[in-house]
Design a protein around this nucleic acid. Structure first.
Length: 442
DNA sequence: TTTTGAGTTGTTCGA
DNA sequence: GTCGAACAACTCAAA
């Protein structure tokens, strides 16, 4: 049996401009690409027709057919990673293993286990940066510790990008010519992949936004991004960044030239990825501990009304209904619904975070957690607690014509629409009092 | 070490 | 209708 190298796909599902895959193929030895449908993750999903699983499956099928054309195949397994790797070790004589780094706590632990398993067999485990522009240790304060405020972080980040560009420190800052080495894929007949049904899932009716975004969308992003009724006001690339179906490097390079505001959003993505990597306690805990003292009301009925888009506040309800129907919610509206849940209803931000995690196509632990902690005021660079969005004035500001609201809440203004479940003014005061008390100011 | 300037995305009140 | 101040002081980053 010949020795082969393995490339392990995770959240980098593309053959082009893929750092780890590039390094794997460049070695010269035959490379078998693999993917694992991870039961540690899948078994926890609540919806059998989860759109992200369908998307994953479809994306892998696309990669599979491209590889089949090259006379190779993707080996897709369904199970727990450690078990799958033990089987792979039985099945193949493996030389080296290549993969791209993942910064979520679960992934770090999983990779440490696999690395250990492989190294015991004298198989090296090589990991690469692919998911972000700069990793958590690449942009640090002068004293060598991580930033916790976005603006100085972003300045340093931009300066570093400029330096790398000027000095050509990293030829591969923008693109890995992976396709140059496609001939090194392991030659094999197509290997069957598990069907959705075999894994206990059903296809989702939800449509996935395209990877192709008109240049004009990025160019006009600054003016359009706050208005949810504008059809292409935002790029909707979140899901593709999440699963790596597009390259972050390519997008950063383009937006650097086209629109600094858009680039800034990509810097936020690196920022929250860094925060998660450096401060993993943010999973399940307030970044700032003193906010744990907030006494949440956690009314289950009100939470349900929020989830279903039945709060009586049109901007909130439109957002939640858009989320439930499409797996997407406009960013401006995400802030409005999050502020409403946490501050008007005084429901623990972790409840909202979990609901978004379940529903959002573009769900990403780092960004979702960062966003919710921002909204709750307990995060790194958070909104002050007295900054409470007024869902009505947000609608007047950002959906003046009510185009967005009427699309998702058609009964709005007809008399059939539910009464507000809380009074804004009272809820606002209640929030201020609750936070003041928690922070020892009352 | 101390000081200084600044901090994604807001709202309300009163002049 | 428009504008500035108050909200509440706090923490961070860098000089």
């Amino acid at each position: 049996m010949d020795t082969i190298n393995i490339f392990w796909f995770r959240r980098d599902l593309r053959l082009e401009d893929n750092a780890g895959l590039y390094h794997a193929l460049k070695q010269g030895q035959a490379v078998l690409p693999i993917f694992i449908f991870d039961r540690e993750i899948l078994d926890k999903l609540k919806d059998k027709d989860d759109a992200r699983v369908s998307f994953l499956h479809q994306t892998l099928a696309n990669i599979q057919s491209k590889l089949n054309e090259l006379g190779s195949s993707l080996q897709i397994s369904y199970g727990k990673p450690v078990e799958v790797w033990k089987e792979l070790l039985q099945q193949y004589k493996i030389g080296q293993v290549f993969t791209n780094r993942d910064y979520e706590p679960y992934a770090k632990e999983r990779d440490a286990q696999i690395k250990d398993l492989l190294e015991k067999k004298n198989i090296s485990f090589h990991t690469y940066k692919d998911h972000v522009i700069f990793e958590s240790t690449e942009v640090l304060k002068k004293d060598g510790t991580p930033y916790t405020v976005f603006t100085p972080y972003s300045k340093k980040w931009l300066a570093k990008l400029d330096t790398q560009q000027k000095e050509k420190i990293s030829y591969f800052l923008y693109s890995y010519p992976t396709e140059k080495y496609f001939s090194n894929f392991y030659k094999t007949d197509p290997i069957a992949m598990p069907s959705l049904a075999q894994m206990g899932f059903e296809p989702s009716p939800i449509k996935i936004p395209s990877t192709v975004v008109a240049q004009k969308v990025i160019k006009d992003y600054t003016e359009n991004r706050n208005f949810p009724a504008i059809p292409n006001g935002t790029s909707r690339l979140g899901i593709h960044f999440r699963f790596g179906t597009i390259s972050i490097r390519a997008k950063a390079q383009k937006s650097r030239k086209l629109n600094k505001t858009y680039l800034n959003e990509l810097i936020w993505r690196d920022f929250y990825s860094m925060i998660l990597d450096q401060f993993p306690h943010v999973v399940g805990n307030c970044f700032r501990d003193k906010y744990e003292a907030v006494v949440w009301r956690n009314d289950a009925k009100e939470f349900e009304a929020w989830c279903l888009g039945q709060t009586g506040y049109p901007m909130v309800d439109a957002g939640m209904r858009e989320l439930n129907a499409t797996g997407f919610m406009h960013n401006r509206v995400r802030m409005v619904v999050a502020s409403f849940l946490v501050k008007h209803l005084l429901i623990d931000w972790r409840w909202g975070e979990a609901y978004f995690a379940r529903k959002l196509l573009d769900f990403d632990l780092a960004s979702n957690n960062g966003g919710w902690q921002w909204a709750a005021g307990c995060g790194t660079d958070a909104a002050p607690y007295f900054r409470i969005f007024n869902p009505t004035s947000q609608m007047e500001k950002f959906d003046k014509e009510k185009k967005y609201v009427k699309k998702w809440v058609p009964e709005y203004g007809t008399g059939q629409y539910v009464q507000p479940i809380v009074d804004h003014k009272k809820a606002r005061q209640r929030c201020l009092d609750t936070y003041k008390k928690a922070l020892g100011k009352a």
